[in-house]
Amino acid sequence: MISIRGLTKRFGSTAVLDGIDLDIAEGERVVVIGPSGTGKSTLLRCLNFLDRPDAGTIAIGDVSVDVARATKRDILALRRATAFVFQNYALFANKTAKENIMEALVTVQGRPREEAERRAREVLAETGLAEKADSYPAALSGGQQQRVGIGRAMAIGAELMLFDEPTSALDPEWVGEVLDLMRRVAAQRQTMLIVTHEMQFAREIADRVIFMEGGRIVEQGPPGQVLEAPHDARLRRFLRRVA
């Protein structure tokens, strides 16, 4: 169970997140849509403290943090309860695909290397990249890199997986394989919070779609309702533009 209250982030005098309240049930798959610059990515980055939020509370599983008073320990706990998939993949350039997946397990979770390696091989098999275990990121296509990125996040076994526009940086030819992998993650009833512009994908896998604008949640509900029968005029305008 994830519970966010009054999450606020300002850059200078503009509130990029303007008091976000959001609950996510275990196993729920939530897709966030909205025009660019409306705080969707910032929401994800604040949950992970890649951007430090200014106010509010975040509770993920047993970790509960008042962000204004967050200590280093709180921040690490929050980061360890979440797994982040980056738009630009952000694989560790000095590590192979397998080592990228092992890194969090060994260094952060303190698991034995053999166990971490076994888990990495399992995950690579799930992502269809078993034969790329010893390849460095530079030798992988964008789609393959992002699949390793998702594998790295899967292996952590985090309470919540965060996807920050995972297909936006990809050449069109690689988008399909990445969405396929995300469908498989979703099928395991992993709790997911996904920022994406892939409306068809949202329709397919989301339990709930959230429309954000101006740092606020404007409308939310099941995809059938939000995407097919939107109430808010800004959402209708947005959907006409992306359709």
């Binding site: 890649l50 980061r79 980056f86 993949y89 952000a90 952060v108 790295r152």
Partner: peptide
Amino acid sequence: DRSQWEAAQSIGMTQAQMMRRIVLPQAGR
């Protein structure tokens, strides 16, 4: 690259771990 720092932070590495395992090896090159 900034993304390397962020990826290390996102998995919950301490600053020392991030430096030793990710940033310094790449800086060394």
